[in-house]
């Protein structure tokens, strides 16, 4: 049984893979393709609405039926995430506890000396 989180990830991946905006029906067909499950359209709409609320996809309301578009490419989202994770985004450090904050070149040289330059 896939969790809602897994479904969100799968749905977003289908939208990234698609060449253009997809309707909820198209997302459902893509999710059902090659798998034994058959998701109900209401489930897919729930998943897409959650993605919209989290600002991962945009709903184009001008058309009927509505189509869904990823707000950014996968690489752009990963870059956002890493940006925050590395503490480059100002005022974000409080939320995360990083293993190591980035070292400057001087510090790196000092560390190498400490560790016997192996």
């Amino acid at each position: 049984m896939a969790t809602l989180g897994d479904l969100e990830r799968s749905a977003l991946e289908r939208l990234w893979d698609a060449s253009g905006p997809l309707t909820a029906n198209e997302v459902r067909d893509a999710l059902n393709a090659g798998s034994e499950r058959s998701l109900a359209i209401t489930t897919v709409l729930t998943v897409l609405t959650r993605l919209e609320r989290k600002h991962f996809v945009r709903r184009e309301r001008g058309l009927r039926p509505h189509v869904f578009i990823p707000l950014k490419s996968r690489d752009e989202f990963v870059a956002d995430l890493m940006h925050e994770a590395l503490g480059a985004a100002p005022d974000r450090q409080a939320a995360l506890a990083r293993f190591v904050t980035l070292a400057g070149p001087d510090e790196t040289a000092a560390l190498k000396r400490l560790l016997g330059a192996d």
């Binding site: 940006h83 503490g87 480059a88 904050t101 980035l102 070292a103 400057g104 510090e107 000092a110 400490l114």
Partner: peptide, 18 residues
């Protein structure tokens, strides 16, 4: 981070890791 030069900003306290 690819395409993100800002991400290399060293931490403010350069002695902490040492």
């Amino acid at each position: 981070v690819p395409g993100d030069p800002d991400a290399r900003t060293p931490s403010a306290d350069a002695t902490s890791v040492a």
